[in-house]
Design a binder for these strands. Structure first.
Lengths: 210, 210, 210, 210
DNA sequence: AATGAATGAGAATTCATTCAT
DNA sequence: TATGAATGAATTCTCATTCAT
């Protein structure tokens, strides 16, 4: 008979830890969620948590961050964007980002908390965002005529800016205080805001640095 | 020794506590900053901190928030806003909010961390913001002809929305990743964004709830 | 009414911690004595122990070492040694060292354990011993004609050697396995050994370095 | 695959465990060296360590001590000692003991740490030393005329004393603070010390008990 | 026979809070 | 009013040991 307590499923255990941790953060907040709470709530031993995440809470966040960041972007084929579908494309970009936040609400709370006490994570995050857009847009410009018109550096800055803008507002809307009374209205507003901001942004000579 | 001298000491101590607390939060993060650290770093006894803030950390956050919000809005005579000076008014509103954040960098971080750690505080914050605008705008509408045209409820929602929007982006710009390479550009963008958003917002039938 | 739990007597508390810690080490060994045991056995809160010894066990040892080293040597007026009373002087030196070990049996066990897991402490110990003899003998040579005959460096080396030799054997006798069946016989043997070793040592050209 | 091959693997693994354990003890100290560290560092599974040493750390110490003691004394044919070669014999006895310590530096540290952590182990050690000399000297006295002259009990006590004395000083010299600046000088001193001590010891009526 | 994931008691450490002075 | 020693529950983290595979 298989003893559940001694079952081996590394992947599963790690996912249970992630899920439980982020669930608890949503319920109690980051600083009031302890590794013991996670262990108890996930019905795992505290030792198991420290086996997979030797530095505790911060490790959970850091590793989740490393594992999950890519996933979101992989699903977006930026190269499909052209003059005709810009608004639609941006709408879906915003919508997907929003859905992603919604599905990982706890993670976002945790991540922003962690970033404040972990400069390294903070820098890793910044680098990750920039590098993602660097790589992606470099590839996109090879196949998309519209994008070729815009200098690569500027293109990167525009996307990084847009990504940050959208994230900031989604986070505030979800975690702190709703900006619109329904998510639909909010997403619609966001996509309009993005169009406005891109226009505004592109008219300027100098753009965002990080 | 006069009473005044004593009350000045009291105020000074409270300010030292605020300063030290926010300084430490910036250095180590909210959840890693303890009241004991604050006492030690501020060269005060822990007893003194508990005298002024009987519930500790959360009290500090809560009281500072209340005080700073009042202070900020006292300096802004919303009743002076009219059709002609809306853009200018909003620009200064945004600018002052930004300056306020900059001068009290820790406050924003701390506040958001605290809110994430404590649902109660979170709810108190939301109520506080709404009530603040309720009270303020109620008074403003009595003397400002322009504001009278807009239904009170809608007016409140607009200001709450605007306040949140601006806060969200300032926080992201200061704490996570700059949205523009200089603060000036960022503030200018923000005030344009506010105008855009207000227009957008006011065209809709339903507005933000919290 | 004075609440014992909230009594303030720093000195007393620290001494209770020392006593309890070393007592427990004698009973259970260093690695099996925890700070929690100490707290419980001394009827103090664990917080109190960490107040005075923030790094726990190693701090207790380190601080005790620093405080106690001086004390022993202060009681020995090396300058009174002369050609006539060498043997007698050495006998009393050995005897006092032995008594000191006996009175602080736990400390010695603890100290040697700690030294093995703390290179820094180890080096501090070595430096302390050498510096003590450097300082002391420098002063002694000014007033003692006999000692003036021996070059200062060599004199230091001789005393360091002697001190180590005696400590090594006392420790073994007390902590591991008795070398003689009574303490008296052991001390007598030790003082004879010291005389033998000093003669042996002084006949050599090169002497111990550390 | 032959049985021999298998048993060789077993022996190899045990040796790897010994080596790694003592290496780690030298690096981090006994109480900070865990069986898990040993397994990881030796690239073995923790299960394997518990297969060969069911009681963990203490078993490793205990078994190594037993094995090494036999090995050491096997190489020393005490029965070959006679009146003519006593000094030379003792010199080589001391020299070999020293070499043994040097080659297994960690063992000595580990062993003394372990003994301090565990009264049982301590008592086992004391018994082991005495029993070893009892057995060995009983056999030796049958074939060595010189030894027959000394009463068996006294002979045992002398060897136990000598063994402890030498061990104590070697330990101090290697682990704490050098007694002489070169190992050669130290060994020479030690063998002279042994002769002196044996003479001293044998002149007394009562000898060491344990 | 070998593995190493899993366990959970317990050690180390922190920190909000109390209260005698 | 101000202090800060003292508290001890809660948290983080380690480690000897077990056991399914």
């Amino acid at each position: 008979m298989s003893n559940k307590k001694f079952s081996r499923n590394k992947e599963e255990k790690i996912n249970i830890i992630y899920d439980t941790f982020f669930k608890l953060i949503l319920q109690r907040g980051y600083s009031k969620t302890s590794t013991n709470h996670v262990a108890e709530s996930a019905d795992l031993s505290i030792g198991t948590i420290y086996k997979y995440f030797p530095k505790g809470k911060e490790d959970i966040i850091r590793k989740y961050f490393e594992e999950s960041m890519e996933t979101f972007f992989d699903s977006h084929n930026l190269s499909k964007m052209n003059d005709e579908n810009v608004r639609d494309f941006l709408y879906h970009f915003v919508l997907d980002l929003f859905k992603n936040h919604k599905e990982n609400e706890g993670y976002n709370l945790a991540f922003r908390s962690a970033i404040q006490s972990d400069k390294e994570l903070h820098n890793a995050y910044k680098a990750k965002v920039i590098n993602f857009f660097k790589d992606t847009l470099h590839r996109v410009r090879k196949v998309n005529e519209n994008m070729k018109k815009i200098p690569e550096n500027q293109l990167i800055e525009v996307f990084v800016f847009m990504y940050n803008l959208v994230n900031a507002l989604i986070y505030h809307h979800l975690a702190l205080m709703k900006l619109f009374d329904t998510d639909d209205k909010f997403v619609e507003y966001l996509s309009n805001l993005v169009v406005f901001s891109l226009n505004y942004y592109l008219k300027r000579d100098n753009v965002a640095s990080m």
